[in-house]
Measured scan of single mutants.
Amino acid sequence: TFYNFIMGFQNDNTPFGILAEHVSEDKAFPRLEERHQVIRAYVMSNYTDHQLIETTNRAISLYMANL
Rank of each mutant, 00 (worst) to 15 (best):
L19P: 02
F5D: 00
N11Y: 12
M64F: 08
Q37M: 08
L19K: 00
L19T: 00
F29N: 03
H22R: 11
L32Q: 12
F29W: 05
A59M: 09
F2G: 00
L62A: 09
F5G: 00
P30D: 03
D12W: 07
Y63M: 08
F16H: 02
L67I: 11
T56C: 14
E33A: 08
D26R: 07
S45L: 12
Q10L: 15
A28E: 11
H22S: 06
A20H: 02
H50N: 13
R31C: 06
N13F: 06
N4L: 10
L52Y: 04
G8C: 12
V43L: 07
Q51A: 12
Q51R: 10
T14A: 03
F29C: 03
A65R: 10
Y3I: 04
E54Y: 07
F9K: 01
T56Y: 13
N46R: 06
N66V: 13
D12Y: 10
P30V: 12
V38H: 07
N46D: 03
V43H: 02
E21S: 13
I60Q: 01
D26T: 05
Y63N: 01
A41E: 14
L19G: 02
P30Y: 15
D49R: 03
Y47V: 04
D49A: 06
P15V: 11
N13L: 07
D12L: 11
S45Y: 07
L32R: 09
A59K: 03
I6S: 00
A59N: 02
F29L: 03
D26A: 01
N11P: 04
D49H: 05
S24K: 15
P15Q: 09
F9Y: 09
P30N: 02
T56E: 04
R58N: 09
T56P: 01
Y63Q: 04
Y47F: 07
Y42H: 04
R35N: 15
N66M: 15
I6R: 00
G8T: 14
L62K: 06
A20C: 03
Q10H: 12
N66F: 15
Y42D: 04
S24W: 08
I18D: 09
H22G: 02
L52V: 05
T56W: 14
N57S: 10
R35S: 13
S24T: 09
F29D: 01
E33W: 04
S24H: 13
Y42A: 02
V43A: 06
T55I: 14
P30H: 03
P30W: 15
A59I: 07
I18R: 14
L62C: 11
L52I: 09
D26I: 06
M7I: 08
A59R: 05
M7R: 05
T55D: 04
E54H: 09
L52G: 00
L32T: 12
N13H: 08
I60E: 01
D12M: 12
R58H: 10
V23R: 02
K27R: 10
D12G: 07
N4I: 09
A59E: 05
H36W: 15
E33K: 03
R58K: 12
T48I: 09
T1H: 05
V23S: 01
E33Q: 04
Q37W: 15
N4A: 13
D26C: 04
L67Q: 13
S45P: 01
D26V: 14
K27M: 10
Y3H: 03
G17V: 04
V23N: 02
L19F: 03
I60M: 07
E33G: 03
I6Q: 00
F16I: 05
Q51V: 13
N46M: 11
Y3R: 01
V23W: 03
F9W: 06
Y3N: 00
I6C: 02
V38T: 07
F16E: 02
Y47E: 01
F2I: 05
A28P: 04
A59H: 15
Y63F: 11
I60W: 06
L19C: 02
E54K: 08
Y63C: 04
T48L: 11
N11T: 07
N66E: 14
G8N: 11
T56Q: 02
I18V: 12
N4Y: 11
R35P: 04
H36Q: 08
I53E: 04
L19Q: 03
L67V: 11
R31Q: 07
A59V: 07
E25N: 15
R31P: 02
G8I: 07
M64D: 04
F5E: 00
F2Y: 03
Y42C: 03
N57W: 11
F5N: 00
V43S: 02
S61K: 13
N11C: 10
N11L: 07
M7F: 03
I53Y: 05
N11M: 08
F16W: 05
V38K: 08
T56D: 02
H50S: 13
T48C: 08
Y42V: 05
N46I: 05
E25F: 11
T56K: 02
R58L: 13
A59T: 03
V23G: 03
E25T: 14
Y63K: 01
F29V: 02
M7A: 04
R31K: 10
I39A: 01
L62M: 12
S45R: 10
G17A: 10
L19H: 01
Y47A: 01
T48D: 12
T48N: 11
L19N: 03
E54Q: 08
R58F: 08
F16L: 10
G17R: 06
R58W: 09
L62F: 06
A65N: 10
S24F: 12
N57E: 15
M7W: 03
D49S: 08
Q51G: 11
A65M: 12
L67K: 14
F29M: 04
G17Y: 04
F29G: 02
I18C: 09
S24M: 13
G17N: 04
L32V: 06
Y42G: 00
M64H: 13
R35I: 04
E54N: 07
N11H: 12
L62E: 08
Q10F: 14
M64K: 09
M64E: 09
A65I: 11
N66Y: 15
L52C: 06
Y42T: 03
P15H: 09
L62V: 10
D49K: 05
N57G: 08
F16D: 01
I39E: 00
T48Y: 08
E25P: 01
A20L: 04
T55Y: 10
H22F: 13
I39N: 01
V38R: 07
R31M: 06
F29A: 03
H36P: 15
A20K: 06
P15D: 13
V23Q: 03
L32H: 13
R40W: 15
E25R: 15
F9C: 04
V38E: 09
T55N: 04
T1V: 05
H50Y: 12
F9T: 00
N13S: 08
R35K: 10
Q10V: 14
A59W: 05
L19I: 04
E34G: 13
I39C: 02
A59P: 01
F9P: 01
D26E: 04
G8F: 08
V23C: 04
R58A: 10
N66C: 13
S24C: 09
R40P: 01
T14F: 04
A20R: 06
L32I: 06
L32C: 13
L32M: 13
E21H: 15
N4F: 09
M7P: 00
R40L: 15
Q51S: 13
E33T: 06
N46A: 08
Q37A: 11
G8R: 11
